[in-house]
Design a protein around this nucleic acid. Structure first.
Lengths: 190, 190
DNA sequence: GTCTATATGTAGATAGAC
DNA sequence: GTCTATCTACATATAGAC
């Protein structure tokens, strides 16, 4: 622990994270991860008992990474609307990937919703994190329906990623983000 | 053609359509379709050359079915806003399925966006159909940016399905539909 | 047209040498 | 901790009898 083993473990998680995004969970094989990392297939079972365990580790990693991103948005301003704008900017920050593969969180949730229910719950952890963070911001804006607003904002962003990837339309992301940001700024602060 | 063979072909397409929705394209095997129809696996190759061909037939079928649904919305009223409301009602009409498996069109596009590009194009045919139909309605409302409105409406509806299935939240569908319909009614008719 | 048997490849997972 | 060889299951696809 803490030595070479942990390093390899992290390499596996990083490669799997990327592959789950670009190919999907089920379409990513151990061979794919092996090719990407140079680590032999058999070794994976030293670090993880099953493929599902790798998924768990990937989601854990994403929760951590997105937690840091949300934290960065908090640091950028004390004004909730500024923080929300910062969050919404992720749409253009990652537009190159979104236009090809959609949202890494949304597409994983959509894929795993079609499986046994436990995988689905795991995959939604990042959405839950974002949702509660958004609730905090809208609550700070004295919105009485902060959770509704949070869901609305996530839904709007998800809708943009789905249609942008379906039609490969980068410009749609830009236009939609502008409209979303108008909406954000219009949110009341009593 | 037209006899027993065509009947079996249709049975396969219908079963595949349902399974591609509830399990995903790649997670649906010939065995699954065989179990659902009672038709032996080997027979599939009499009707289709490859699994991709089955997908093509499923998408063709969906285009036809949704074409009829859009036509039904046109028949319901000559007023474009009424037609748009009719279309938006699909969200609650199919909410039982949406809350579990998301949108059949959106999730298929999201899944196949991660594959070779030709499969993705095929899967988006239904979106293209809806888009052009929506453009007609917004054009009839004298919207100068009818295509933008069409994309916005599809994106909003897709976002709702993604979040509703992620959180298994049926109530979110109802609330979002109400807000969407307020938006529809507010669209200008010069 | 219908069905069984089978070919071929690859998936996730395991055993055991080093 | 690392790696190779291998197991078992199941995927798509094919061959050929009926």
């Amino acid at each position: 622990m803490g030595s070479k083993g942990e390093n390899n473990r992290q390499l596996i998680v990083e490669a799997a994270d990327q592959l789950f995004y670009t190919r999907g969970y089920h379409q990513t094989s151990f061979r794919d991860i092996s090719d990407a990392t140079g680590i032999p297939r058999g070794n994976f079972y030293y670090y993880f008992k099953t493929k599902d365990d790798i998924l768990n580790a990937v989601v854990e990693s994403r929760v951590e990474v997105w937690g840091e991103m949300l934290h960065a948005c908090e640091e950028e301003s004390t004004e909730p609307r500024q923080r929300l704008l910062c969050f919404s900017n992720m749409l253009t920050k990652f537009e190159d990937n979104i236009v090809v593969n959609g949202c890494p969180i949304g597409t994983l949730c959509s894929e795993l919703a079609k499986d046994e229910r436990n995988l689905q719950e795991v995959s939604c952890a990042v959405f839950s994190l974002m949702r509660s963070w958004l609730v905090e911001q809208f609550t700070a804006l004295n919105c009485p329906d902060a959770d509704d607003k949070a869901m609305d904002m996530l839904a709007r962003m998800q809708g943009v990623t789905v249609m942008a990837s379906a039609f490969g339309d980068r410009e749609f992301i830009h236009r939609s983000l502008s409209e979303l940001q108008v909406w954000i700024v219009s949110q009341t602060l009593s």
